[in-house]
Amino acid sequence: MDFINLIGRVFLNFLQSMGRFAIFGAKSVYNCFTPPFYFRSIAAQMVEIGFYSLPVVALTTLFAGLVIALQSYAGFTKFSAEGAVAMVVELSVTRELAPVMAGLMVAGRIGAAMAAELGTMRVTEQIDALYTLSTNPFKYLIAPRIWGAVLMMPILVFIGDIIGIYGGYLVCVYKLGFNPSTYISNTWEYLQYMDIVSGMVKAAVFGLIIALMGCYNGYYSKGGAQGVGAAATNAVVTASILILITNYMLTELFFMK
């Protein structure tokens, strides 16, 4: 009996937090489109998310490009199909690797920071103070973070695309001895508009996920410093899992018609 009780309680808790998250998400997105807009805060978030994430995103996509070139060469050389390496690098970097890598890296950097910042503001009553000063925290704190993440993630991924493809070029030309101009023309031949665009759309969705999970966990954190730490961890873990799941669904949506 106790066991059934427990399952029931866990299930109800789950439904309750899903409901709370749905309301939070709807309210956040609504407040992104209604004035007042805090353009200064949006700009600050864009710099924080876009500019300061550039090194990690560049590094991860570079290595992703390097390693995918090596592996696909190892595979294709068995069929004497080395010409396909450029295509595999281009496809996997733009469609999958750059958006997912950038998403996970930014989730770690920014999701945690957002949760910690808002969580600290929650437990020190700064969020309550905003309300008493006639300022809606959804507009002042959350909307700029969502805008920042949704606008900058696609740009980060676009840069990641270039760096990742360049990584493949480096391996193929300097390590495997491909002809540089053939490699470049192969890349251009297979590169499609949709590859780049789909990756950037994914990136915008991942940006929304990162900002929502960071803000949600921070906004509802409780119980002092420990609660803030837990909020940051939860934000990163939930955002990362959601990014991987959403990535699969979006790939199916874009490419499996």
């Binding site: 009553e125 700064q126 309550d128 300022t135």
Partner: peptide
């Protein structure tokens, strides 16, 4: 209305005068 919070709840990211003027500028 106005409120003085238990831990003051000043905004860490703003300096003193911007904290005091917050409601005047935003509200």
């Amino acid at each position: 209305s106005g409120m003085l919070f238990q831990g003051a709840a000043l905004f860490d990211s703003l300096n003193v005068w911007r904290n005091v003027a917050f409601g005047l500028i935003q509200g």
